[in-house]
Design a protein around this nucleic acid. Structure first.
Lengths: 246, 246
DNA sequence: TAGACAAAGTGTTAAAGTGACACTAATATA
DNA sequence: TATATTAGTGTCACTTTAACACTTTGTCTA
């Protein structure tokens, strides 16, 4: 599995590059690590890969990228996203830097963590790709390589915060969605239960949904109305803050 | 002023160090920049120094430090604080990394911004110190060197956020303070006016102040009661969040 | 095609929180 | 002792939140 020739080549190239940078005079490197969130109507998930580093070989880790001097930090994070999922122009936010001295086995690497939100259907990892990218349910995350567990938790915390002050959830859902889907999203990200009627009342008062007049199809019960997010209305109101005080 | 021999020596040492690091193979350096906030019963202030960099010579900038490979990021920020004010164990929070390619005139320097809260009376900058550290009122900040204006604004925004979810204000005030002082602090940091009675009601309901039974002295009017912050009570309640929804 | 099943959708009420507002109390000083 | 200055206090109308149960609409199947 981790012994494929193609895989090995890749490992050593990345590792060599990093080693040479760390062996240079200043001996300090900077990376970005991305927490790419997806949501599949059940769980919040995160995109993980199998680590290349000898010490963590085979362990799951967050996709990252070594920042070279000619690349903006933001750009570097976009590169990770693009490389791993083929997607761009997604919601992405920097969270913070992680810079403990011993966080990386090969030397001093300070990493900047970003998280981004992906509609999960837009990217299904091909099964034969190197590093075996995969969607992992957040409640199935055990250990991760490096300090990535801590990074993931920090990013999740930030996402929760944001979700309560801005209607970010739409980034994780398909264009058309039902109120129930939206509620379930809030419930699984925030880890709480919400009252259906109160949730709907709140959303109505925010007034950022467009009723499409369409309905779910192929469900074996009363189909739900479908809505889409009204970006324009949202942008017009944004400044005042839109709190979901659950 | 900027021509003092002692000063010049310092400039070149710092600059040489940085240059040599940037000229090394990997050509990327990491710094920390600190927004040190103080409050003097009137205004929120920030500690600034005069810049050493040729391009920004004499301009005001935030105190910073070049992170060397053996120093934790957090530690580096503490060093800046300690070096500049002599103080340690203060409230300090990392905000985020700033990593635009051209943010630094000498080359690629990614910086991590921290802010911290200081009781302003605990540090009065000596007038003869190099780089002329000084407290600058936030509403007197015009331009700063590098992207430090942006960094300052981001840190201020974070402080405002935090102030509304945790009673951080106490870090900026002396141990004993009146309710009026506390209200003025909130008003100047948040940039809004608050109703005296509503403010007091809110604070009473949070129940994290200890009435010291003491009063202001040497004021030419009715002296106000003095309070102190009840750290224990606060820690016991903290988890539930303590929102000041002004 | 009628009845059972499953999820969608809908309002009310009590409690808590917020915002607006004006007078009395205590001290220093002239 | 009168005046000036700031401290300190309560109420009411309104808004927001939390808790709670039944009807509607479609599909499936007997």
């Amino acid at each position: 599995m981790t012994g494929k020739p193609e895989n090995s080549n890749n490992i050593s190239k990345i590792e060599q590059q990093l080693r040479s940078q760390l062996e240079s005079m200043y001996q300090l490197a900077v990376s970005v690590d991305c927490v790419i969130f997806g949501y599949d109507d059940e769980d919040l998930k995160v995109l993980v890969i199998e680590s290349d580093m000898p010490k963590y070989k085979g362990m799951l880790s967050l996709p990252g990228y070594l920042v070279d001097p000619d690349t903006d930090l933001e750009e570097a994070a976009q590169i990770v996203l693009k490389d791993r999922t083929g997607l761009s122009d997604l919601y992405m936010e920097q969270v913070m830097a992680f810079g403990e001295r011993d966080r990386h086995p090969l030397g001093r690497v300070i990493t900047i963590a970003y998280y981004s939100l992906v509609e999960i259907n837009k990217f299904q990892p091909p099964s034969d790709q190197k590093n075996k990218p995969q969607w992992l349910s957040l409640n199935q995350v055990n250990e991760l390589a490096f300090d990535h567990k801590k990074i993931l938790e920090t990013c999740l915390q930030r996402l929760r915060l944001r979700l309560q002050e801005q209607p970010l959830g739409f980034n994780l859902l398909p264009d058309k969605f039902s109120l129930k889907q939206l509620q379930r999203l809030y419930e699984s990200v925030l880890g709480i239960e919400l009252d259906k009627r109160n949730f709907r009342r709140k959303l109505k008062s925010l007034d950022v949904l467009i009723d499409l007049g369409e309905f779910q199809k192929a469900v074996s019960n009363r189909p739900a109305k479908l809505y889409k997010f009204d970006l324009e209305k949202y942008n017009a109101k944004k400044k005042k803050g839109m709190f979901m005080n659950f």
